[in-house]
C-alpha cells in the first residue's frame, strides 16, 4: 500500500484500467446484457437505452461483444505471453549457462527467427498452417519467444560471469539448481518488467492479425476484428468502430504506464 502511495498518477490510472478490464473479462457472462453471438436486432442500430453502443454489422449487441471481447482478446494475449515467456526465459538461461555449441545453435536459430519481421512471419506461417485460434497462439508464442530468449540470455550471461556461479559450479551443483536457485532470482525483476512490455506487443499483435482477418475468427467476439467488421460506419462519421480500437489503445497505454513506473522504480533503487 505504501507502494501505491508513491505511484505517479499515470501508474494509478493504469492499475485502475487494468483491474477493471480483468474483472469485466472474468465475469463477462454476468456483466454482459446479451449473449456473445446473439442476434438482437437490425444491423448497425444507433446507440439507444436498449443497446448503449448500438448493434454491429450482423445485428449483435455491440456492448456485449465488447465485454466478451475483453475476455477473449486479453485472455489469449495472456496465454500467448505466458507460453512465450516461460519457454523463452528457460531456454535463454540454459543457453547462457551452457555456453559453447549449445548456446551457438540456439542463438543462431533465434537470429533467423528474428531476421524476419514478426507480422510477416506470422502471416506466412498462418498461411501455411491455416488461421485458427490454437495455430495463432502457437505461431505468436514462437515468434515472441525469440526476443524473450535474447533478453533472458543476456541478463543471465551477466549473472553467469559472476563468481558465485563459479563457486556453485566448483561445488559440483547440477544445471537445475544453478538455473532455479542461482540465476533466476537475480534476473526475475528484469523478466517481470519485460513481461509487461511483451504483453502489450502480443496484445497489439493479436489485434492487428484479427483486424487483418487472420487472427481470432468469427463469430468469436474480439476487439481487433470488431473494428474491421464495423469499419464502414466511419465513413458516415459514426465513432462506434473506434470504441474497440480505443479500448485496445487504453489497455496498452495503461500497462505501459505501469511498466514505465516499475522500470523507473527499479533504476531508482539501483543508484
Amino acid at each position: 500500500m505504501t507502494l501505491l502511495r508513491t505511484a505517479p498518477p499515470t501508474a494509478i490510472f493504469g492499475l485502475l484500467v487494468l483491474a477493471a478490464t480483468l474483472l469485466i473479462g472474468l465475469f463477462a457472462p454476468l456483466v454482459a446484457p446479451y449473449g456473445e453471438t446473439e442476434i438482437v436486432g437490425a444491423e448497425y442500430l444507433p446507440w439507444s437505452a436498449e443497446h448503449p453502443l448500438g448493434t454491429d454489422n450482423l445485428g449483435r449487441d455491440m456492448l456485449s461483444r465488447m465485454i466478451f471481447g475483453a475476455r477473449n482478446t486479453v485472455g489469449l494475449a495472456l496465454l500467448t505471453t505466458g507460453i512465450a515467456f516461460s519457454v523463452g526465459a528457460a531456454l535463454g538461461m540454459f543457453a547462457a549457462l551452457k555456453g559453447g555449441w549449445v548456446d551457438q545453435l540456439m542463438s543462431r536459430a533465434v537470429d533467423v527467427l528474428m531476421a524476419v519481421p514478426p507480422l510477416i512471419l506470422a502471416l506466412m506461417l498462418l498461411a501455411i498452417i491455416g488461421p485458427s485460434i490454437p495455430n495463432m497462439v502457437g505461431v505468436i508464442a514462437v515468434i515472441y519467444l525469440a526476443p524473450v530468449f535474447r533478453l533472458s540470455r543476456a541478463a543471465a550471461m551477466n549473472v553467469v560471469a559472476l563468481d558465485f556461479i563459479g563457486a556453485a559450479r566448483l561445488r559440483g551443483e547440477g544445471t537445475v539448481w544453478l538455473l532455479r536457485r542461482e540465476i533466476l532470482p537475480n534476473i526475475s525483476s528484469t523478466l517481470v518488467a519485460e513481461a509487461g512490455l511483451r504483453f502489450c506487443f502480443v496484445f497489439l499483435f493479436i489485434a492487428a492479425l484479427s483486424f487483418l482477418g487472420i487472427g481470432i475468427q468469427p463469430p468469436t467476439a474480439d476487439w481487433g476484428s470488431m473494428v474491421k467488421e464495423n469499419a464502414t460506419l466511419i465513413t458516415f462519421g459514426d465513432v462506434t468502430p473506434l470504441i474497440p480500437a480505443g479500448a485496445i489503445a487504453l489497455l496498452t497505454v495503461s500497462i505501459n504506464f505501469i511498466v514505465d513506473w516499475m522500470l523507473h522504480r527499479a533504476s531508482g533503487l539501483k543508484s
Binding site: T10, C200, L204, A207, A208, F211, G224, V227, A231, I234, T235, F236, G237, V239, P241, L242, A245, G246, I248, A249, T252, V253, I255, N256, F257, D260
Partner: peptide, 27 residues
C-alpha cells in the same frame, strides 16, 4: 514527450488511422 510517446506506441495503427480519417477526411 514521454507520456505522449508511450500513448502513441500503445495505439494500434488502425486506431490512429481511423481516428485520422474521422477527423481529417470525414469531419
Amino acid at each position: 514527450a514521454n507520456i505522449g510517446a508511450l500513448s502513441a506506441i500503445s495505439m494500434p495503427e488502425f486506431f490512429v488511422a481511423y481516428l485520422l480519417i474521422l477527423v481529417f477526411s470525414i469531419k
